[in-house]
Design a protein around this nucleic acid. Structure first.
Ligand code: NAD
Ligand code: NAD
Lengths: 234, 234
DNA sequence: ACGATTTTGTTAACGCGTTCACAAACTCCT
DNA sequence: AGGAGTTTGTGAACGCGTTAACAAAATCGT
């Protein structure tokens, strides 16, 4: 598998790294998970077809995606699970752990804080922030809830680069501004608003109402097409 | 072959409704939210530029998106907020309320069950399902937690067409199968696995670890480019 | 040693989504 | 009424992502 055609690692040549499409990036974590699943079941090698099946995509897309990273497979054989897994993890940046701060420890923030699944995927919840004085000092999953005005200190001390916003929508922009001011440059936003951030800061939003509304649209169409069929049958 | 050739039209393709691109569908809820925000602030009319600003997209895209629904604006004037809002809501299927069942009332399921924001966006959490006998009958937000084996009855009685899966990953496919068997045809999945569903069933997944990993990738690239710059400056 | 078989890596075609740019349609002012 | 100004709706160009298809490279059997 590790034939002689390695990579010109270290050399500052035409960076193969430069142009990984965003759509591919978004699928790499899925491949990573599929590979982890295979590894857990003792599988050591897999073809693009098998991997694609486990990831829920077609094999042409999977191969194309992997080709942006390098040539980590062996023709006629497939991919070595653990090797490919490492390469993808490295590409995503999961050879290090990332520290995360959660701001807003209400219903949702609490669930996130208690969730054990982040740690195994390279993320460490390092701080919990709220503005409700009655909650200061309360311990959740071994971490104390800390006042918002200590955000700067906490972000610096824990080397936090990722922030999660789980406050009500009306505070979210303010919280976002403070996160950015504290040095956070990646934000995962659960509040249902459009955040404004300066250049260089990445925002991803998770909006559950939107997901439900998209489902509702298709649900309605399904219902209508049934009506159409019945009407057409008359 | 693009030129004037409209569509393969085929049988009876008169419906303007038929061909709304998926990407547009995914943005309609954002426009809806922006319109609601404007309406709340007493704004009765808005240009595509204003609306686009509130929605975080550019105005050309917004106009194109709206053009798939119909011609609801007035040239030289803009869009009437309440009228457009109604038209979008109708298109998405929000003139009716949709009943939702949440399966798996743990950390996350609990947060979802308690969330008050769904009701105002056309969704009614109508049932809570778990398999932990010690939780049966427990009330959350006015609803009793119900055993999984009553899923069929509950789905039928409450006319539920949307299911939310918030169980551990190892049970999620089983839960999914049971939801489908019970008649649910739209599923929002929080478990980190790829669900297999029959034709006609829509699945959307919300995967927080993936979101964080995408952020981590960009974070790493930002860090690397700083290193590159410093190295280049020598 | 070599042809048959498998499966990757990649090129080229295709399709979808975004953006540009402008005629058409409206309001307002004189 | 008519001209100036505004803003929509949309055709066309463009770019990105997906898919199909196949040559290249590996293994296997004889
Ligand atoms: N709970 C859900 O399932 C759910 C679903 C979809 C979206 N959301 C969104 O997620 C966000 C949180 O929802 P929730 O149900 O957890 O709300 P919540 O009201 O239960 O919790 C909000 C928490 O944020 C804290 N807070 C308020 N202002 C703050 C500030 N400026 N800085 C730090 N903390 C602050 C509050 O003290 C509270 O603890 C909301 O924007 C909501 O719309 C939640
Ligand atoms: N909590 C989070 O913030 C978070 C974040 C990302 C992903 N997730 C995913 O969401 C899912 C739920 O996470 P959680 O933290 O709430 O887990 P949890 O363990 O707190 O809750 C799971 C609940 O599901 C119930 N359950 C188990 N099997 C069931 C079945 N067959 N039918 C019905 N109910 C069943 C359990 O009794 C429990 O109440 C998991 O798949 C997790 O990976 C959670």
């Amino acid at each position: 598998m590790t034939s002689r055609s390695r990579k010109p690692v270290g050399s500052r040549e035409v960076r193969p790294d430069r142009g990984i499409p965003e759509a591919t990036i978004a699928r790499l974590p899925i491949y990573l998970r599929a590979l982890t699943g295979l590894a857990d079941r003792g599988v050591t090698s897999a073809s693009s077809e098998e991997l694609a099946g486990a990831a829920g995509v077609n094999s042409a897309k999977l191969r194309k995606d992997l080709s942006y990273l390098g040539t980590y497979g062996t023709r006629g054989v497939g991919y070595e699970v653990s090797y490919l897994r490492y390469q993808i993890a490295r590409e995503i940046g999961l050879t290090q752990d990332w520290n995360v701060v959660i701001v807003g420890i209400g219903n949702l923030g609490l669930a996130l804080a208690k969730y054990s699944g982040f740690a195994s995927r390279g993320f460490c919840v390092a701080a919990l922030i709220d503005t409700d004085p009655s909650r200061y000092g309360e311990k959740v999953a071994g971490l104390e809830i800390t006042p918002l005005d200590q955000l700067d200190r906490v972000v610096a001390e824990c080397s936090i680069s990722i922030g999660v916003i789980a406050t009500p929508a009306n505070n979210a922009q303010n919280v976002c501004d403070r996160l950015v001011a504290a040095g956070v440059s990646s934000i995962l936003n659960f509040a249902p608003i459009v955040l404004n951030v300066p250049e260089g800061v990445d925002v991803r939003k998770v909006d559950l109402s939107i997901e439900l509304q998209i489902l509702a649209y298709h649900e309605q169409r399904k219902a209508n097409s049934v009506v159409d069929l019945e009407a057409g049958a008359l």
